[in-house]
Design a protein around this nucleic acid. Sequence first.
DNA 1: ACCTGAACACCGTTCAAGT
DNA 2: ACCTGAACACCGTTCAAGT
Lengths: 252, 252
Amino acid sequence: MAAAVRTSVWLDGKTTRSRKTSQPATGLDRQKITEATVRLLDAEGAAKFSMRRLAADLGVTAMSVYWYVDTKDDLLELALDQAMGEVVLPDESVDDWRTHVRQLAVNYRKLLVTHPWVSPLVGEFLNVGPNAQLFSTAVMNVMKASGLSPRHQAGGLAAVFQFVYGFGTVEGHFLDRCARAGMTQDEYFARAMSAVSLNPGLDAMMEQSRDLMEARGGETVEEMRDRDFDFALEVLFAGIEAMGGRPGPSTP
Amino acid sequence: MAAAVRTSVWLDGKTTRSRKTSQPATGLDRQKITEATVRLLDAEGAAKFSMRRLAADLGVTAMSVYWYVDTKDDLLELALDQAMGEVVLPDESVDDWRTHVRQLAVNYRKLLVTHPWVSPLVGEFLNVGPNAQLFSTAVMNVMKASGLSPRHQAGGLAAVFQFVYGFGTVEGHFLDRCARAGMTQDEYFARAMSAVSLNPGLDAMMEQSRDLMEARGGETVEEMRDRDFDFALEVLFAGIEAMGGRPGPSTP
DNA sequence: ACCTGAACACCGTTCAAGT
DNA sequence: ACCTGAACACCGTTCAAGT
């Protein structure tokens, strides 16, 4: 007989486990537990999150949570999909596909930055909860409108959204490090740069970095990152058009 | 006084902690410990890795490792940089920049896929070890040769290598899941698809997926992914060229 | 200089028991 | 139906002690 492999809460999990009694003892609830999880992950980070910590936050014993959720991983999947629901999807009845892609890209980036714990989970789990599926559908629809041939849509989609995933992931982690170290982004950046420059035998590396910094002008770290993100999106749009996508409204 | 914030083994860590005695008691060594760590992470995954597990593998008591390494995080940073060293860098004296970028992209993807534990660490740590710096230097050099203006090189770099990071990350995790479930990629994929299709109220979503699958033809999951990756790289090259990069050898 | 053992403050999860 | 307490098999790390 086939091995009982667990794939996801959404696929193998028991249905909702919602409360059956009208007079609850503690007022607990899958939704409430998920919300508390997201709140704790935001506030204290994934490293500090635990079932016991969560239970304490809910004013309940550690094991009560297990009535509503099978494992910690299941709970993380629920939190992941909850967060995915924050990505606002474009209204496809207006504007062109570039605007839609940009909106999705910007909003997906925002999700990864405001919830740095999300990106490891996206990699780790199948991410097929209801909100994730709405997001996927929106992404696929928007690529359909790109003018790329069906054969090429998946590749174009990957180019754009894996880029955003990578970009938002390192950005989110960096912001997280800054916050936990109690520094601004620019302070942390300067500190890391100067520490690196103290290392021996890295003249070539440092030269590169310095050149790049100067070329970027005197902006803040955040401004540079925003500009890099915007330019990368322009590269992707131009590339999709060159590979058979619908031309933009104005390509001067 | 400034807070004593730990940034990285490479920046704040004690230097090398190499052995001073000629007659070692156990033959332990930073390098040996790092290699054992990589081997265990590959074989059993990040979730199962622990200092105690590592010590057992080295035939030593759990706390011996702490003589060579301050914390588990430091050890993970060492393992990360060790893995980064596997990315073979292009010989920049031959071929054009596209070939170099492609080589770096393909090799970086390979790293992320063969060591799925690497990608969370890339996000989590500064990744400024010696091998990481060699990699960064190579990436920056190669972008310099792209013909993009200095102002735009960082954005172009992000577009390409954050894409590869995202792509390799989800690919690596997927392969990992398949291996641990004892299924082939195609089996696992079919299973997930059919499980998703059992969910209620997802007709629109499924329709999309089915269309996409048919458009992809009857290839295996691996073939589809390779094709998507190659096409995405073509999109990026075309986009970089359109935004001011050096034209390719032949653009028919 | 290098390694050990005991101990501390944690984990996720199981299970029998309560109401 | 829902919640608790005790227990099991783990963690990372500290610290005093050994050689």
